[in-house]
Amino acid sequence: MIDLVIDRRRKDLGGFEVGRVLPFHSRRMVGPFTFFDHMGPARFEPGFPRNVDVRPHPHIGLSTLTYLFEGEITHKDSIGSNLPIRPGEVNWMTAGSGITHSERFETLRRDGGVMHGIQAWVALPDGQEEVDPAFSHHPRDQMPVFEDKGLKAALVAGKAFGASAQVPVFSPLFYVHWEMATGAKAGLPAEYPERAAYVATGKVEVEGQTLHAGQMAVFKPGDTIIFEALEPSTVMLLGGEPVGPRFIEWNFVSSSKDRIEQAKADWRARRMKLPDLDDQEFTPLPEPAPPAQPMS
């Protein structure tokens, strides 16, 4: 049963517009997912300016999960990672005690093309918020996949539908990519207490309600949720076990306001190492910084 429908809100990240879904004022998290941005689809011509890139910036207390439908992003971070992510692949970056990274559109700037994907943040559970930073890249041939009667499914991260992904998650969660042909039907089982579905493209019917591109439905626990595609559709399923209340400010997530204040001070004072191969720019802390917002 649908508990809430959230419409994406357009946000300008300084040259690149995204559709922000989470956090939402009446639903800050779904399971451990604290942040959900839909990037594009946006077409770029060759030679577009560098201000569209995401310059080096910091994180603590979370893992970022980048997943593309189209385009390419070059990831560089402060633990030495430097590689592109392409459609159907996963970048999983665990900030833990602190990491910095950049996201450059080098291939798109050279060749032009479409950028389309999702970036999500996953809060780390109690006892794991200060783990050592880490990064892993997972090509599409590592993902569990399923195909039947107009449905193509890929398990991006976590466990669902009897399968397990290779992404090294820290708490029980699921993240699934569905491609649905017109008329295809599929069910989301009641495996986790918190579940949601985001329609990236197309239109689906769920529990007698039509959801269109740019909408996330958050479901009540306890029932299998049946989907039917009214046209060719891309749907992302997400959720898991809650990790408890979290605060979020700028790029920092933590169960402690004081820890966020320390991270802000470290970034202001340039105590956080920049990416090894991208240390000539950085993203200033927004000033005056707003107070950390509680999430649960």
Rank of each mutant, 00 (worst) to 15 (best):
G112K: 11
K203G: 03
A186K: 09
V167S: 08
P125N: 10
V122Y: 10
A184S: 12
L151P: 07
L188M: 09
P144L: 11
G202Q: 05
V204D: 08
E106M: 12
L151W: 10
V167C: 11
A213C: 02
F105H: 15
S136H: 06
T210I: 10
A213S: 12
V156H: 06
L124F: 03
P189W: 04
V156T: 02
L108V: 12
P125K: 09
E205L: 11
E106K: 13
E147W: 12
D132I: 03
G113D: 12
G202I: 03
A157Q: 01
P139F: 02
V206N: 09
M180H: 01
P144H: 12
G183A: 09
L211E: 02
A123T: 04
V206I: 12
V167K: 12
P168Q: 13
V122A: 10
H101Q: 14
E130R: 14
A157E: 00
G187R: 11
S136G: 05
A196W: 04
E147T: 14
I99G: 08
G117I: 07
R109L: 10
T201C: 02
A165Y: 06
W178R: 04
K185V: 12
F105Q: 14
Q209A: 08
A120E: 06
V206F: 04
D148Y: 12
D148L: 13
V169F: 14
R104C: 11
E205M: 12
T182E: 14
E191F: 00
R110T: 14
L151K: 13
A184C: 09
G183V: 10
V199P: 02
H212F: 00
F161L: 10
G158T: 06
V145E: 14
K149P: 05
Q166N: 07
M143Y: 02
V206H: 10
E205V: 10
M115P: 02
G127H: 03
R109S: 07
V176E: 06
Y192K: 06
M115V: 11
L173N: 07
R104Q: 14
Q166Y: 04
F135D: 05
T107L: 14
Y175R: 11
T210C: 03
H212N: 09
P139H: 05
K185E: 15
K149D: 15
K149R: 15
E191H: 03
T201P: 01
A196T: 06
M143K: 15
